[in-house]
């Protein structure tokens, strides 16, 4: 509508550029330059070559870590979906008050520092913790080692990332018009077929959103796998940190970081083409 076009925007003017310039310059210097630094280091440390990439892409150790990272991320995403979908459904189906309380809990979990949550899992799964105590009580003489395994880090990551999934799915579910479900029922859809043909397609955008978000965050997750995972089953981020901190191997660390970045951006680019990146965090 003509009436909504502002007077300023009719002729090209400098205002938007002036307003945008400080941030653009800032991001160029303090965001892009460090990234370019990583790219350069991946080729120049310790000397100019593509040896780092050759090692990262073909070395058995690195391949194993990449594979492990992918498997873990996929597993965490799947688990988040299995945990998140039923809860979102339950929230949507329950009374406003109950839904509100569950939402408060999820939000609180979301806002609680993930270091705190990681620590809590350490307590829960520790050798003096309640789960081991429970296992002892029901007859396990020597309970299995829970902490510092792939199990503990995966479980904690599911817990940390589940709120992303729940909120994404819930926000889509809440917008589904109940009349639509009722009319589908009146047309003969029930049980699984109702879910398969009505609910699932309608909530698909939320599922896609949640899965992409959880998967991408999980790929680059550093803290929790390092603190709770097994040292023998590292993920990429942990290995990058290890290379830098222990060996000061900036070339290798940078090359791995670039590969991780490329994979992450590729996934997000696919999402961006399909849905638009601003929707992902919206």
């Amino acid at each position: 509508m003509g009436a909504t076009i502002s007077r300023l925007s009719e002729k090209p003017n400098l205002w938007p550029w002036l307003l945008l310039a400080p941030l653009a310059i800032y991001l160029a210097i303090f965001f892009l330059v460090p990234l370019i630094d990583v790219a350069i280091m991946s080729f120049t440390e310790p000397r100019l070559s593509i040896a780092n990439y050759q090692k990262v892409l073909t070395g058995a150790l690195y391949q194993k870590v990449f594979l492990n990272t992918f498997m873990t991320a996929a597993l965490v995403t799947l688990a988040c979906l299995c945990v998140g979908y039923p809860l979102a459904y339950l929230m949507n189906a329950s009374k406003p008050r109950t839904a509100m309380l569950i939402l408060l809990l999820v939000t609180m979990s979301f806002w609680t520092s993930f270091l705190v949550r990681t620590y809590a899992w350490m307590v829960l799964l520790g050798n003096n913790g309640p789960i081991v105590a429970f296992l002892r009580a029901v007859g396990f003489e020597t309970p299995p080692q829970l902490l510092f395994t792939r199990f503990s880090s995966t479980l904690a990551m599911v817990h940390i990332l589940a709120p992303y999934m729940i909120m994404n799915i819930y926000s889509v579910m809440r917008k589904i018009d109940p009349v639509l479900i009722r009319s589908a029922e009146s047309l003969g859809a029930r049980g699984f077929s109702l879910f398969r043909h009505v609910y699932l397609p309608l909530t698909a955008p939320g599922i896609a959103n949640g899965c992409v978000l959880v998967f991408v965050i999980c790929l680059g997750f550093y803290v929790t796998p390092v603190l709770l995972g097994s040292p023998r089953e590292q993920m990429i981020a942990g290995l990058i940190g290890h290379q830098i901190e222990e060996f000061l191997a900036f070339g290798m660390g940078s090359a791995m970081a670039m590969v991780l970045l490329a994979i992450t951006l590729a996934i997000l680019a696919i999402y961006h083409r399909r849905f638009g990146l601003d929707k992902l965090w919206g």
Binding site: M1, G2, A3, I5, R7, E10
Partner: peptide, 13 residues
């Protein structure tokens, strides 16, 4: 009609 109004008010030129 609205465009005319906005021109009178000065929001459109």
């Amino acid at each position: 009609k609205t465009t005319t109004l906005m021109i009178i008010a000065g929001f459109e030129k």
